[in-house]
Design a protein around this nucleic acid. Structure first.
Length: 336
DNA sequence: TTGGAATGGACAA
DNA sequence: TGTCCCTTCCAAT
C-alpha cells in the first residue's frame, strides 16, 4: 500500500530497528545478489524517505554522522515499492518491531510477524533464528535481533550519494518533509494545462501522493479532477497542500489512510462527533477505535455508492490508465 | 488452475 | 497513449 505515508513510516522503522547496527544483507531470491554484496556487513547510519522512495545509508562502523562530507562514504540502497512491494519484519521480541507495511492485501499493511521470544532456558544459550524467507524475497536485512524482508519492489539498487541526491532533487516537494516548499507545488500546478488530477499523481509536482490521496484530497477541496492546473485558484492549491500535510502525517502515524471526518462515517448517521479530545485512531482493524476501511474514504473505490456528503452516486473513470473516483456534484467543474 | 486487479512508474512511439 | 515489469491474493473456472 505504498503511498508516501507508508514509506515514511518504514524509514522510521528502519532507523529504530536497525539504526547504528551492522547488518547482514543478502538476496534470497538472487536478483539483488550483486547489490547486497556491496553493503553486506556495513552499519545502517541513515534511513530517509522522500516521496515514495526510501534511502538506506550504510557505511563503516566508525563513520561519524557529524564528520564533514559524511555522505561521501555511505552507500545508499534506494528502494521503491511500486504497486505491490512490501517489507515484512520479524524479531526476537526485543526490538521495537511493531509493523510491516506493504502491498494491498486483505489486511492492509498488516503482514506482521513478531516471533515469540525463545523459552527462557533456551534463550540463554540459543541465539535467535530468523524465520525462513517467505515468497520471492529480493532483499533480506538481518541484525542480531530483527530481520526485514523485501518482496516485489519496482526499484532496489545501491547507488552513490550523488545519485541519491539527484533522485531526490528531481522530485517535487513532499508534504511529509519539513523541508518541503509548498510554493514549488503551487507554481508547478499553475504552470500546467494538464488536469489537476493528473498533476497530483506526478511525483515531480508533489512527491508521495498516490491514487488514494489524490482522490480524497480533491474531494475534500471540492475540486474537480479534470480542471486544468492553470485554472485552479492558488488558494485552493494551498488548501490542498495543507490538507495533504495533515492527512499524510496522520496516515504515517496510524499506518492507514483515513480521510473521512467522524460526522461523515456510516456508523451513526448523525452520531455526534466525540467531545473534547479527538479519539486516537489505531492501526490494526482489531484495535479499538480503528476506523474500518469501508468508512475511511469519501470517494476512493466508492463508485456507485452514495456520496457521504450529498448522496450523489460516486463516479469512476480512467485517467492516464489509473482509476479515478470523484463526486460529480461536490466536485463540479464549474464549482470552482 | 487460471486470471484479474492492486495505493506505481519507466520507457517507446 | 500504450506496453511492460515487479508479486500476491482471491474469485472464478
Amino acid at each position: 500500500m505504498p503511498e508516501g505515508h507508508t514509506v515514511h513510516r518504514l524509514a522510521r522503522t528502519f532507523g529504530e530497528v536497525f539504526g547504528g547496527q551492522a547488518v547482514e544483507v543478502s538476496s534470497p531470491q538472487g536478483r539483488f545478489a550483486a547489490g547486497a554484496a556491496l553493503v553486506d556487513g556495513l552499519v545502517l547510519h541513515a534511513a530517509e524517505a522522500v516521496g515514495k522512495q526510501m534511502f538506506l545509508g550504510l557505511g563503516p562502523a566508525d563513520h561519524s554522522p557529524s564528520a564533514p562530507g559524511l555522505a561521501d562514504d555511505l552507500r545508499w540502497v534506494r528502494v521503491h515499492l511500486g504497486l505491490y512491494g512490501s517489507w515484512t519484519f520479524a524479531s526476537d521480541g526485543s526490538a521495537e518491531v511493531s509493523h510491516a507495511i506493504g502491498a494491498p492485501r486483505k489486511r492492509v499493511g498488516e503482514r506482521e510477524t513478531v516471533l515469540a521470544a525463545a523459552a527462557p532456558e533456551e534463550s540463554v544459550l540459543a541465539a535467535w533464528e530468523p524465520p525462513d524467507p517467505r515468497g520471492a524475497v529480493r532483499v533480506r536485512i538481518l541484525s542480531a535481533h530483527a530481520v526485514a524482508d523485501l518482496t516485489g519492489p519496482t526499484a532496489c539498487e545501491v547507488i552513490s550519494p550523488e545519485a541519491a541526491l539527484a533522485v531526490q532533487r528531481r522530485l517535487g516537494p513532499d508534504p511529509l518533509r519539513s523541508d518541503a516548499d509548498p510554493e514549488r507545488f503551487v507554481s508547478a500546478v499553475r504552470r500546467s494545462r494538464s488536469a489537476v488530477g493528473l498533476l497530483l499523481m506526478n511525483q515531480d509536482v508533489v512527491a508521495g501522493v498516490g491514487n488514494i490521496y489524490r482522490a480524497e484530497a480533491l474531494f475534500r477541496a471540492g475540486q474537480s479532477p479534470t480542471t486544468p492546473g492553470r485554472d485552479v485558484p492558488g488558494d485552493v492549491l494551498h488548501e490542498i497542500w495543507d490538507d495533504l500535510v495533515v492527512l499524510m502525517a496522520d496516515g504515517a502515524a496510524i499506518g492507514a489512510i483515513v480521510t473521512t471526518r467522524p460526522e461523515h462515517r456510516g456508523d451513526g448517521a448523525g452520531a455526534p462527533p466525540p467531545r473534547g479530545r479527538r479519539a486516537v485512531r489505531q492501526n490494526t482493524d482489531a484495535a479499538p477505535g480503528a476506523v474500518p476501511r469501508d468508512e475511511s474514504f469519501y470517494v476512493y473505490q466508492r463508485d456507485g455508492l452514495p456520496c457521504r456528503v450529498c448522496g450523489t452516486e460516486i463516479a469512476r473513470s480512467e485517467m492516464a490508465g489509473r482509476n479515478l473516483f470523484w463526486c460529480p456534484s461536490c466536485q463540479r467543474d464549474d464549482r470552482r
